[in-house]
Design a protein around this nucleic acid. Sequence first.
DNA 1: ACTTAACCGAGACGGTACGTCGTGTCTTGCC
DNA 2: GGCAAGACACGACGTACCGTCTCGGTTAAGT
Lengths: 208, 208, 208, 208
Amino acid sequence: MTQNSTVTGRASNKSNGKRPPGRPRSEHSRQAILRSTLKLLRQQGFPDLSIEAVAADANVSKATVYRWWPNRGALVADAFLESAEQELQFPHTGSVRSDMSRQMRRLIRVFRSSRGKVVAALLGGGQSDPELLEAFRERFLWPRRRQAYQTLQRGIDRGELPADTDLDLLLDSLYGPIYFRFLIRHDELTEKFADKICGVVLKNCGPA
Amino acid sequence: MTQNSTVTGRASNKSNGKRPPGRPRSEHSRQAILRSTLKLLRQQGFPDLSIEAVAADANVSKATVYRWWPNRGALVADAFLESAEQELQFPHTGSVRSDMSRQMRRLIRVFRSSRGKVVAALLGGGQSDPELLEAFRERFLWPRRRQAYQTLQRGIDRGELPADTDLDLLLDSLYGPIYFRFLIRHDELTEKFADKICGVVLKNCGPA
Amino acid sequence: MTQNSTVTGRASNKSNGKRPPGRPRSEHSRQAILRSTLKLLRQQGFPDLSIEAVAADANVSKATVYRWWPNRGALVADAFLESAEQELQFPHTGSVRSDMSRQMRRLIRVFRSSRGKVVAALLGGGQSDPELLEAFRERFLWPRRRQAYQTLQRGIDRGELPADTDLDLLLDSLYGPIYFRFLIRHDELTEKFADKICGVVLKNCGPA
Amino acid sequence: MTQNSTVTGRASNKSNGKRPPGRPRSEHSRQAILRSTLKLLRQQGFPDLSIEAVAADANVSKATVYRWWPNRGALVADAFLESAEQELQFPHTGSVRSDMSRQMRRLIRVFRSSRGKVVAALLGGGQSDPELLEAFRERFLWPRRRQAYQTLQRGIDRGELPADTDLDLLLDSLYGPIYFRFLIRHDELTEKFADKICGVVLKNCGPA
DNA sequence: ACTTAACCGAGACGGTACGTCGTGTCTTGCC
DNA sequence: GGCAAGACACGACGTACCGTCTCGGTTAAGT
């Protein structure tokens, strides 16, 4: 991931090796901003997060924030997603059901941690900011889903799943209940819940 | 539903027949405010909804809005929930699977309609406002769930479901995927999706 | 002073002995209102005095205040003036200079007392409310001035003052400096100041 | 007078030559605000003057007004006093009585002009806002009084006044009656009144 | 070394909406 | 008909952020 991978994506200068003239962007400021964003997000939630406060907390001028992120959503998306890469890998246990339930447990653990608050903020804010939701999907959901496809495909190859399985339907059936409880909060979201869902959805797919 | 069922719940005077002293609350204003709230919510989404605009649209003073609703969230919750009572009844077809899939189809229809935008606003806002989410659960989720329990119980009585079925797990497995697609918007939310979920979760519970 | 002598003066029914129909005006409320007005006026000054607060303090409804006084100014005027009648009489010492200086000392004593704050409020408010100032003149200034004319006339009769003395000029010269220091507060307003003024203005008018 | 001489007196940076960091204050806005304040003050009087209206009239945001003036009083004081500096100089006619009466006539002329309304507003408001009154004294009264001392001292030097004259008493005797009529409005305030007062107070001090 | 150009902090600016308060009017039921 | 209670439309309050701007000062690369 390059330095310039903001959500909105300023043109990077990766093609020609030449650095542009002038003072280069302050990496220190960039990190301080993203760090403060996460910090405040955890404290107050998305709608009470102000650019003003982020700038103050990061000891940075407002103009610097606005120079690099067009709006609050982009900032939040960048802050969260940079911190969420390289996580939640899928294991290879040799059984679909166990591969899935283990990864689902990890997701639930993340949702229950302090980072869960940030995800909730992201998805909550995304309900009224399409770009925010888009960022969540592109940078968080799809990368994991691609791995999930492979996991399921291994199950098909092993004969644990029928060859004509609707992968998207299956994944939504597995993860939907988790997101449901996470977002509506009508019932406990424990790690055991992952196993129970697998019990319902992957009844005949090998041992838990 | 009484006149006083705001989210924050001012003490209602239904128990003792006596009206409180002073000029009575204007029912006309109350309705105008809720109507304007829904209207503007559909047009602009939750974060761009200002009390100022609601008051102006309803030809009402800001103070009147604030007198009865403590914040934007409570207003939105009341506006939506008052409009959503008495809806989404469960049918009695004689088959669990068909009862459920039909009601799930209705829910999807609501989510796809203009009222979906209001639900999304409510749930999005609820991610940072616990009371808002609480209102959604109390006034929307639980009333329906109580009916769903009965529907499933009929299935158990008829032998379509095992007697030891975990009802909450089952319901979350059925509705979770719908809310998932509705809130994350990573895939189409069609009415047919209801049937497919039932196919996964209620495989052996009678005809679709 | 009759019950109805508000500044704005509702028509009284003194001519025909018949009481009007309906419940008679509550004398208790009237006094409570005036009392609270004075109290709050002493505490906070004219611009921070609200009808709302007066009504609350007097345990009276706002409507009752508005029914009898058209605005804040009339209320304040009534409150002050009712409390200020029958005061500041002129003595008869046999010497103009001594008569005047003694009365001036009394005025200064009032200005320095807690009632001074109310007078200041009245005159301050009067700078932007002509009726308030008019009330002050009619009910406070002129009654005293009429007595002062008589005092000065006695001085003329005794030969202490020339027969062609401009009484208004003389009185303004005597009282102007007191009001000046009272309102501008640029210098001490002690009772001795009364004597000094008399020394300047009534140099040759008999002993101090 | 420096740019920073607001009533509340932000620290000015005149001593050390360095400009403070950040965008400099807009002199244009500052003047527009003061100009609009005077304009509206003349039209409507102090109590009907709203910051909201000033900001609108000056094409300036409310926040800008509040950034530099803590309240309406300070704003009015600044507006008036900036417009009143360098005025009402004392003449040098060679006679105390004539010096004084001429300056007093000028003051009366100001009080009768449209600016009189602003002074009345200032003093009226000052009755409940000590800082406002303080500003009037510091910026309007004392500067003139210092000149008056010199004028009277010249009279002493010329033998027109006794060497032991109480200057403050004398000045209050001369100006008190003017302020009295100006603020109470119980009698005409003509320029001739200045001469008459001098006749009473400076009887033996040379020709008029 | 000197220019040049972009970066950065600080913070003022015109706006918009906030949530509160007081105004003066009204509606209702009791006295 | 007076009165309390209190809801109402209205309008200003003073505050908080928005996103933009204008400064002086900094930081390298390319002269």
